[in-house]
Amino acid sequence: MKETTLKSIDQLHKFLERFRKASHFKFRGQSDKYWELTPKAGRQEFKKVRDITIFEHWKRRAPYYLERENYNEWELLSIAQHTGLPTRLLDWTHNPLVAFFFAASENYEKDGAVYIYKANHRVLHEKYGPFELTIPIAFFQPNVSSNRIANQFGYFTIHLDPKNALNDDTKDGHLEKLIIPSELKKEITHMLNQYGINYLTLFPDLEGLSKHLSWFAENNNFWNNTFDEDGLD
């Protein structure tokens, strides 16, 4: 996997120029460069319970909270993923700025990473259910079934075995990695906030509002200690 390191904010803008006319590339940000590209259901704390079992329990209780009744299986799994359930899905985005936000907004003491993936194939999810696939790792574009998926320009990889990470051995296409040094993280999040990429826009609900206000308060010195309405918008 090609790996480079971001040197400055100016270099970030230069890096993005490469993808301005290339819509096939998707991006994922992780706040620790050592984390593998593994779905939540395949991580150590969730490995002992099958993700299908967890999802079946979720589906029994979820209708009470859903806005409509006729979601298909792909939509339900996508909503479950975006509301925190351990699933075999791994989030990607069409918008590289969203990936930079997730790489830079947490674990300030650690280097983060933005991954760039161009899959050779996509799943036609109109023909197959998410648990009917036999491909080890597949790529698909979900229906916009929630505000979070819409605002984060969401895409997914789906992993037949959630414990299997996407890497050079399992990829179906082009994969590369950009390291985000820890010392650039706060500057990147402030820049992205100015561009309209923050917790409030990516999580358009009360959780996102609370996270955004918390982030603003934690970084109050950046705005000369002016915690007011004008600064928050």
Rank of each mutant, 00 (worst) to 15 (best):
E73S: 15
W74R: 09
L76W: 08
Q81D: 13
Q81P: 11
G84M: 10
L85A: 09
R88I: 02
R88V: 03
W92N: 05
T93E: 01
H94S: 12
H94T: 02
N95K: 02
P96D: 00
P96R: 01
L97W: 08
F100A: 02
F101A: 00
F101M: 02
F101W: 12
F102L: 01
A103M: 05
A104M: 05
E106R: 09
E109K: 12
K110T: 04
D111R: 08
A113F: 07
V114S: 03
Y115P: 13
H121K: 12
R122T: 11
V123K: 05
L124V: 04
G129I: 06
G129A: 06
E132V: 01
E132W: 01
I137D: 15
F139G: 00
Q141E: 15
V144P: 02
V144K: 14
S145I: 14
S146K: 11
S146C: 15
R148H: 14
R148M: 13
A150N: 10
F153C: 02
Y155N: 05
F156M: 08
T157R: 13
I158S: 06
H159V: 06
P162M: 07
N164G: 03
N164A: 08
N164L: 10
A165F: 02
L166N: 02
D169C: 01
K171G: 07
K171N: 10
K171M: 03
K171L: 05
G173N: 07
L175K: 07
